[in-house]
Design a protein around this nucleic acid. Structure first.
Lengths: 189, 189
DNA sequence: GCAAAAAACTAATATCATTAGGAAACCACT
DNA sequence: AGTGGTTTCCTAATGATATTAGTTTTTTGC
């Protein structure tokens, strides 16, 4: 019988798709083995263990998110850049729920350093260039922005906003307006 | 031989402690059975299944967080209330990492409705009473605040802030200052 | 075409979760 | 105190996932 032709990349790709369709919790070696019609143990030729697979998907998720962020910010500045960045985050959470969850899988220091995380941080810094903030304030602003993006997307997806009016999208835009004003008046506050 | 004297409450309590000390992922029926020196199957007299245990711990976590929030807000108003609420969240994440994670375990609609979640939301609304916001703006503000608390605590705990200066605590305070100003000037922005 | 490397397999072990059914402890009530 | 019923806990069996060791088979490079 011919080989299945697996590889690290194929497994991670399939794992990402599986996470998005079935949830990150459903991302198991056994499920992938079934999908490729291969015995479970065979996967160990390509992946160290289950956590290695999850870390791989996490790295892919961070890379993709960083990519989305980069193309959102490209060619924009000020509020326009911030809003585009925000939409990239929120759309990512909505269209790739599994990857969005995967992106919070704990990584080793080396893995994290080489991940899309730092790239994402740099992109967020770039988006804030139009606001004329000090070095330290830029970091504060990126953290504030990142916290809002992540927290809002999580709460929205978990249904925490589902039982109060008005619709979450309004709060989202209102929050972005507020952050824009905050960045514009940063020194004075 | 005498009985172990288990109960739903004891299991949930022990589960909460276990989650905090070993991580939410380590919260398993098998681990609790070992801890109480009881056979794994015996736990099914008190808990429907593994998810039931996790949901129970999640409910305890939300209750405790709501309690912390309530006592933080009690007797305070305006920025003082917001800051106290914020510190409650951040301390909770730091002192109860397992419960903080458990609080994001997906609950059924009925479970969520009876959880500390709605109480927490009401408490946050109360904390904003001093700012004179319209009904809808209060909701927007609560969502903005909640997103910041959750997102910041997550990113801080995950180490996302560890590789940039200044220290996260500064960004935290700076973010709260900014939110306070935002709420004060809400109508004008 | 052959030897080495890589990929896949079988087999064994461990942990966790779950259900079914039986035994023993506990409680309420006489 | 004894007895009946309820509840707790147990044993036993099954199935899913993960992991390692050792073996076979395919592929590939010379």
């Amino acid at each position: 019988m011919p080989r299945a032709g697996l590889s690290w990349e194929k497994l991670i790709q399939a794992g990402a798709a599986l996470a998005d369709s079935e949830g990150f919790a459903a991302l198991t070696l056994a499920a992938l083995a079934r999908q490729f019609d291969v015995k479970l143990a065979s996967l160990y030729a390509h992946v160290r263990n289950s956590d290695d697979l999850k870390a791989g998907v996490a790295l892919l998720a961070l890379d993709l998110l960083a990519k989305w962020a980069e193309s959102a910010v490209a060619g924009r500045a000020g509020k326009e850049a911030v809003v585009a960045l925000a939409e990239a985050h929120r759309r990512f959470a909505g269209e790739h729920p599994g990857l969005f969850e995967a992106a919070r899988f704990p990584l080793s220091a080396e893995q994290a350093a080489g991940s899309g995380g730092p790239r994402l941080a740099r992109t967020m810094l770039a988006a804030l260039r139009g606001y004329e903030l000090s070095e330290a304030d830029q970091v504060h602003a990126v953290r504030l922005l990142g916290s809002f993006f992540l927290g809002f997307s999580l709460l929205e997806r978990s249904g925490s906003f589902a039982h109060s009016q008005p619709e979450p999208g309004q709060s989202w835009r209102r929050g972005l307006d507020a952050l824009d004003v905050t960045f514009k008046n940063w020194k004075t506050t």
